[in-house]
Design a protein around this nucleic acid. Sequence first.
DNA 1: GTGGTCTAGACCACC
DNA 2: GTGGTCTAGACCACG
Lengths: 131, 131, 131, 131
Amino acid sequence: MFELDVRSRLPVYEQLVEKFKQLIISEVLKADEQLPSVRVLAKQLTINPNTIQKAYRELERQGFIYSVKGKGSFAAPAIKSVSSEKLDRLTDELKKLAAEIMYLGMPKEDICEILSEIEQMVKGGDGVDTD
Amino acid sequence: MFELDVRSRLPVYEQLVEKFKQLIISEVLKADEQLPSVRVLAKQLTINPNTIQKAYRELERQGFIYSVKGKGSFAAPAIKSVSSEKLDRLTDELKKLAAEIMYLGMPKEDICEILSEIEQMVKGGDGVDTD
Amino acid sequence: MFELDVRSRLPVYEQLVEKFKQLIISEVLKADEQLPSVRVLAKQLTINPNTIQKAYRELERQGFIYSVKGKGSFAAPAIKSVSSEKLDRLTDELKKLAAEIMYLGMPKEDICEILSEIEQMVKGGDGVDTD
Amino acid sequence: MFELDVRSRLPVYEQLVEKFKQLIISEVLKADEQLPSVRVLAKQLTINPNTIQKAYRELERQGFIYSVKGKGSFAAPAIKSVSSEKLDRLTDELKKLAAEIMYLGMPKEDICEILSEIEQMVKGGDGVDTD
DNA sequence: GTGGTCTAGACCACC
DNA sequence: GTGGTCTAGACCACG
């Protein structure tokens, strides 16, 4: 299900965070859908439960999932009120990244094209390949 | 001149790398223009010369500056041949970032507008030799 | 285990890089085999951990090892895609070296013989998984 | 005449040493032919005379040129007796280099082919492209 | 325990 | 003066 790379310089728990973020953003994980339990996922991925726990905690902190004691963790339904601070931080990062990419020779038009593809994915998240 | 955050999760030397990258990309630092010396910058920022060294070394590795023993460090003039691997890595990162931003509600059009601004900035350093 | 020459013009950390490169190329260090930890090796060689760190960092950059925080450093399993630029640089260096050696009187045949020995050594680590 | 790269991590004087070595090895500079004077060459290359001096001193130390007080510097006619130590050092370096090149996938045959080209150059050093 | 970052201050090579 | 290397020892993040 997940491809974790223990060799990566990125900590394992952050890789998990990224994976789940993408699943939720692309609506492969629908709103209020339950995530696998910490213990089950830890066994599946043969990694320490603490690592899963840490990832879930981070996802909750960022508002992508919510946890219910005794029930489990669930994908958050939508974004209530995005702190403009977070959006600012993200767009700022995007600016830097886009600047470097353009500096390396890629024209703005190509980047816009990429954005169009992403737009489809984010909006049209139909559960086609949920596996 | 620089705003460094020593408490940041991002290492100081990486913050420096980012700052200089931006200065070079936006051509505030022109090609072959000399950067502040390791020792001088260390004193200015009240951080250790080794940390500056590490940042400069990384910038050199990424092709943004070149260093000459006994002379100084200088902004690299242009990009010779970007490894497509690097561009792929960057665009991939951009995709994830853009997806999250759109998920948080910002329409594609707004992002494209941002890109236009950046395009001006990157190209902005018109080809006139100010030296 | 290692013979380091602190008086050498070659920095200690580069000597370490060379040593490990050879161990990995000759498959004395098998793929995914763990290298000695930074601290342990530093004690063994009675040099500063930072110097080992620098060597490991360079080896990672060159693709010969990979490091995992909290786990250790390991020999990289194989070469994915060598940048042709690197190979060009290496063969260019070899050309100069071979020219000088021939100039000093060694015939081409002798050099080819040496190459045969090396071929054995490099391939020598037959594909049997000793792990 | 010379292409010096002040940006190179290689010191300028070593670049000079390499250039002259190649000229002498390929017999573009014939035996007992005079090299340009320190001052003249320094002006031509717009670098410090001390740097030229250092290069010539190193070339003399390695036996590629000899200097006569009040006359100038000249290409050494041939190799009298190569210290086997030097040849050992060079072949050792070549072994490492060849091992890395083979490790990166280039077959021995390709390397031998390269050697044949070099053999022609070293033996047949006709002054065709002395520029 | 591991690797990674940082500081304080020393010495070297280069030009 | 410049960049580059190294040491001594500290602290942090990761698993």
